[in-house]
Design a protein around this nucleic acid. Structure first.
Lengths: 200, 200
DNA sequence: CATGTCGTGATACACATGTATCATGACAGT
DNA sequence: ACTGTCATGATACATGTGTATCACGACATG
């Protein structure tokens, strides 16, 4: 029954099953057995292709990061050609807010991983995890470019502003996931801030 | 061995043990047995005074909310006499950011409950949970008062501004707990926003 | 003094979890 | 054709979980 098989394909199938469970039932419900069932394979196969649960979680996290990266690139591209600093900043921040199914899924799942890291900080180290800092730096650079282009108020500190805005979209995302407000409301709050305090 | 006993005292002792575990090891580690051990009582007693784990969690959450409320009142009082809208707004937002042991504890534990609610939204309903909305309304009212006092730029929308700022301190708190930056850095970012975009 | 309720302990139950072990069929290389 | 590695299944094991049950001593109330 078992010929040679494409390992990467199987790993993708299983990791995607985990991400699907993390979206619909939360990351804490993603047990090895649940992932196996969702992927339509036996428990043994999940072990076979990932050995340990931690390995599976880390692999799925890497895929999640790729997906967010791809989403950001798409949104930046769709925000206008050629992209201006202003449109890029708006796109980056907007595409994080959970307004559609994909962003909700990503936000939910990231939150699960965040909780995981809080309870076991070692996981973070086994993973090139400086990602939020990188994003923050990129955003700061865009803000600085916006200042030179005259789109952004010149007296703003790019680093502090970038950090504050990213924290805000993070917090807005949490409030949406928690059911406190809709994604559209969150987006309106973000846009209001950008228009009244950042852009000229 | 067992005389009549003060139920409320025992319940406090046990609920505080849960909050202590939630702080040091995360809410997901607060099993009935762990709470019993931390409180120095037997597993049976935890069941006796709280019947079910959900009841224990809800009771501890109510206590946590009281503690945050008390902290806010203290900070508001310490921010200046008489309190001005400006000092109240600053105090409310600042006291949420995890800069000392108590705020870190509260932020960590609230985050645990947040995760809990995400995975099981029913718990939220068994609990008068409109608390974040109330806080937001109060903050908006203070901002409006600040506008009338001339402390706050008159063209700001109080509701949108309050929502954005609360989301930001939330996000800043997450980044501090996640080890991305220090509490002081987070506070500096908040203060920068208040000075440059809110207060006149 | 009797009796029933209160406070407490020990322990059992049923279940879920991550991981490990054993077995077995299929195919590749010699 | 033989042999060993690959892919897969079934199942076992140890542990942790929330909850339930049984037992028993202490005290208040009649």
């Amino acid at each position: 029954m078992a010929t040679r098989v494409d390992h990467e394909e199987r790993r993708t199938q299983i990791a995607e099953a985990l991400l699907r469970i993390a979206d619909t039932q939360g990351l804490q419900s993603a047990s090895m057995r649940a992932v196996a069932a969702e992927a339509g394979v036996s428990l043994r196969l999940v072990q076979y292709y990932f050995t340990t649960k931690e390995a599976l979680l880390l692999d799925a996290l890497a895929r999640l990061q790729s997906q967010l990266q791809a989403r950001m690139n798409t949104w930046i591209g769709a925000a206008g050609t050629p992209p201006t600093p202003r449109s890029v900043v708006t796109a980056i921040l907007s595409c994080i807010v959970p307004t559609d199914a994909e962003s909700s899924r990503i936000a939910r799942t990231y939150n699960g991983y965040y909780t995981l890291v809080l309870s076991d900080p070692d996981v973070l180290e086994k993973h090139g995890a400086a990602q939020p800092a990188i994003l923050e730096g990129f955003l700061a650079k865009q803000i600085r470019a916006g200042q030179q282009a005259g789109d952004v108020a010149a007296d703003k500190d790019p680093e502090l502003t970038a950090a504050g805005l990213l924290a805000m979209v993070n917090g807005l995302g949490s409030s949406v996931l928690g059911g406190q407000r809709s994604g559209e409301d969150a987006l309106a709050i973000l846009r209001y801030y950008l228009e009244t305090t950042l852009f000229t």
